[in-house]
Design a protein around this nucleic acid. Structure first.
Length: 423
DNA sequence: GTTCCACGGGAAACGGAGGGGG
DNA sequence: CCCCCTCCGTTTCCCGTGGAAC
């Protein structure tokens, strides 16, 4: 496989002039294909300049539709422009709720964000009561004064623990804060987030909504073109590279992020192959590569229980006993757990793990219904090559031995041959 | 139309690991 | 020291559902 090569790191021919425009954190100076949304956004923020009461603003749209980038753009303009007016005092706080699953955690993150900018001590993520954290938060906000724009990115992560959205807009009318006017900008990937909020929150949360629809292929091309021009040397990109990236991304998610990653990956593949141009073929390879990585990461991030369930399914796959119904899979799973000297979870919980893995695209599910006494049941099989599951399991502590057993079982049944060719 | 089954969503609760604060 | 807080994966219930067989 891998061998040391002399001059392994010698500089390749460069296809990239400046890869930064293809980075996730790159902020373009103009935002394309979002004129209507930006105009609405600007109107929604206007009252801040006019010193009028401002509604909270919610942006809805799937990932990669420009919500975050539009917000960064609007806020930096807003900050610049408020500097002109002495009577407008504006601060902004930005919290990404990506890993925060409750209002409590969001409140802690907000406090820490506010304190961080003033070099005060952070507070820990557990230990306080919720009300205590909210009180600390109100104190910090009050100390800032003026208008504070609070951006809660990926706010749908908090699910139905939405107290923070009740508390913040009412902080002033409830007398928790005196000198500060909070404006919440919520960014959500989930269109139904609003509908699932509790009724008391819906009542208090006067909001303006802005929808960010997915991009189509034409729009993605228009977004990619200026970045591609900056990122690559002249004449490196073949004419069909950008349109193909746009087409793939438009078909799948309509996400600009996906299109950009695809283009970067294609560039990296072309560079690695020491090619002068980035071709259609490189884009196709990049698409495969990214898909594979996503599945691989999905598998690695499973919990021990998830790995055990996956391992059980892999065993059935190696025995060529697929699709397998969950009750048979469960028996295998229990045996695997006792072999590993690990606790086994209930059948109900195993079904949850299976449905998680189905969501990740790791496994296939078939619904069967045999009526009267056989009833309704599901059957499962792997949706990724057995070989790649084994690769992950071999790398996972506690599972190496089992992975080897499964591997030799699969070898006996000649089930790995075809997988190698698809992979 | 009725009957039957496993599925899967939901709710409540648990327990042990994070950590307050007096 | 003790009693308080939240979090997470889980258990243990309950219940509505689809659809072939009766």
């Amino acid at each position: 496989m891998w061998q040391t090569i002399m001059g392994m790191f010698q500089r390749d021919r460069q296809v990239f002039a400046d890869a930064e425009p293809l980075d996730d954190s790159y902020e373009p100076e103009d935002i394309r294909e979002r004129d209507e949304e930006l105009e609405k956004y600007q109107r929604a923020l206007q009252p801040i300049i006019d010193n009028r009461p401002t509604s909270n603003i919610f942006l809805y749209g799937k990932t990669g539709t420009g919500k975050t980038v539009a917000t960064k753009y609007m806020l930096s303009h807003l900050e610049n422009d408020t500097a002109e007016y002495d009577d407008v005092h504006l601060s902004t706080v930005w919290v990404s709720c990506e890993n925060l699953s409750s209002s409590y955690q969001v409140a802690v993150a907000l406090v820490n964000e506010l304190r961080n900018s003033q070099d005060k001590d952070r507070i820990s993520a557990t230990g306080y009561s919720q009300q205590r954290v909210f009180d600390i938060l109100y104190e910090e906000l009050d100390a800032l004064g003026g208008t504070v724009v609070i951006v809660l990115d990926e706010i749908d992560n908090i699910g139905n623990s939405d107290d923070i959205l009740y508390g913040l807009p009412r902080a002033r009318s409830n007398g928790y804060v005196d000198d500060v006017r909070p404006v919440i900008v919520g960014i959500s990937n989930d269109f139904q987030f609003r509908d699932n909020l509790s009724p008391k929150v819906k009542d208090t949360l006067a909001e303006k909504e802005i929808l960010f629809p997915p991009y189509d292929a034409n729009q993605l091309r228009s977004i990619l073109n200026p970045r591609a021009e900056k990122a690559f040397h002249d004449d490196v990109l073949s004419d069909d590279a950008v349109p193909l990236c746009a087409a793939f991304a438009a078909q799948d998610t309509g996400s600009a992020r996906q299109a950009i990653r695809l283009l970067r990956e294609a560039g990296e593949l072309a560079q690695a192959a020491d090619s002068d141009t980035v071709t259609e073929e490189h884009v196709r390879e990049a698409q495969d590569e990214l898909e594979k990585n996503q599945l691989y990461e999905g598998m690695q991030e499973l919990t021990t229980q998830g790995h055990a369930v996956l391992c059980a399914l892999a065993y059935h796959q190696a025995l060529d006993e697929v699709p397998v119904r969950s009750r048979d899979l469960y028996e295998r799973y229990v045996k695997i757990c006792s072999h590993l000297d690990a606790d086994s979870v209930s059948e109900r919980r195993v079904r949850d793990h299976l449905s998680d893995m189905n969501m990740l695209g790791l496994i296939n599910l078939f619904e069967r219904n045999e009526g009267l006494s056989a009833g309704r049941y599901h059957e499962y099989e792997l949706d990724v090559p057995l070989k790649s599951v084994l690769e992950v399991l071999l790398d996972t502590t506690r599972f190496e031995e089992l992975a080897n057993i499964i591997q030799s079982t699969a070898d006996d049944n000649n089930l790995l041959q075809s997988d190698i060719s698809d992979y």
